[in-house]
Amino acid sequence: MRPRLAAVQARIQGRTLAGLLSLPDPVLRRLAGPPVVVDGQTLDPGTQLVLRLQRLLREPAAEQHPVAEGREILAAQSLTVGGRHPVGAVLDTVLAGLPTRVYVPRALLASASRPTLLFLHGGGFIYGGGHATHDAPCRFLAERAGVQVVAVDYRLAPEAPFPAAYDDSVAAYRELLSDARSHCVDVDRLAVGGDSAGGNLATGVALAAAREGLPLALQLLVYPMTDCTASSVSRRTFGEGFFLTTAFMDLATESYVPSADLLRDPRLSPLFAEIPDGLAPAHVVTAGFDPLRDEGEAYASRLEEAGVAVDSRREPGLIHGFLNWVGLPGQARDAVGRIADRLGAALH
């Protein structure tokens, strides 16, 4: 399907989904089916309905296709759930040699020194990009939090395996600092954040910053991958039926990690990292029905034990990927609103 036609179709599907999720709660529950309860948590009915429709429509799963096709599938899905979000300005540039998109909220258009979030997208290190999959949440975060968002498209596997994404992320952070004036960055109000694989990379940037004594005000970690050994209970409990699958995670590991002896490398699995002094405060958000739930919460606990200021929250009814659902009414968008508010409070 041609890209323009695919985008139009995704927008139409998104409006249809938004209409369904706006129905009264009793109707939404009937459409979604009987409540799904696991670990004492009840799956959000709106999320349950979307998952049910995906199964009924036999929507393709990215991991079941060649990587290039999988990237197109995830881009289309992100467009469907992302919606439209006006923002003050969107600028395409290059940071550390990497394609980068800058989102400036309306409130900061006239400012030459802006609170800034360096955003690293999720996608298992093999999919995604600020342009393709995370344009909507970046727009939402910028306007709602009142911060500049700098979204970097790091190199992807399998073309560029570990540690390429890690190296790119750290290099982008260093360049933001070294050339802060031209990027309109207030270095005293600079955060790093990301979701899933991007949350993993954000931990790496934060750890590197602390080791080098460089400024960082916050690390924003949304359902981060922190343990590549895949040993948590939630990986087994939620590995099927809740969007992020075991097959997806296995493909990501096989594509990104060249050798099994790297699985505990702290640049890849920050749960095994030494926690340096001066590490930036962390806001860690997990989802109740997410295979990565336990390792994200384990990392939050690890930071707390090391004396790092941590604000941790679980969204019990949600699934992996909810950050992208800002175009749909319901619990997911409300959760992203809370993330944006926490980001704004930390940087203002």
Rank of each mutant, 00 (worst) to 15 (best):
G330N: 04
E305W: 09
G213D: 02
F242P: 06
D167H: 12
P115V: 04
R4M: 12
A335W: 02
L279A: 06
E274Y: 09
M225V: 14
L303I: 03
P24L: 04
V285A: 15
V27M: 00
L263E: 14
P45F: 06
V170Y: 11
L271Q: 09
V222C: 08
P86W: 04
Q331N: 13
D168L: 12
F322G: 04
A6K: 10
L176A: 04
T237R: 15
F243P: 03
G344R: 00
L91A: 01
L218E: 06
G327D: 13
F243M: 10
D92C: 07
E72I: 07
A273Q: 09
M1E: 02
A230G: 14
R15D: 07
N324A: 15
A110H: 10
R101G: 05
E254W: 06
D195P: 07
T100P: 11
G70E: 02
G122Q: 15
T133M: 03
V192K: 03
V37H: 07
I275E: 10
V222F: 03
L109R: 15
L156R: 15
L268W: 00
T203S: 13
P276L: 00
S111Y: 08
D44G: 11
Y154S: 08
A252K: 01
N200C: 12
L91F: 04
P291T: 01
A180G: 02
G213K: 04
H348V: 04
T229M: 07
D334V: 03
A172C: 05
G83C: 08
L141Q: 09
S269Q: 11
L56D: 11
L17A: 14
G199W: 04
C184E: 14
F242K: 08
A6F: 00
T80W: 10
S182W: 02
H85G: 12
G327I: 08
L216W: 07
A180M: 09
Q219W: 11
G199F: 04
T133P: 13
E69Y: 08
P26H: 02
L218N: 01
A32V: 01
L141K: 13
A160F: 14
G33W: 08
G213Q: 00
R264H: 12
A300P: 12
Y103H: 00
G307Y: 14
N200E: 01
A75Y: 08
T286V: 13
A172S: 11
Y256D: 03
A300N: 10
V90E: 13
D227R: 10
H320N: 06
G198I: 13
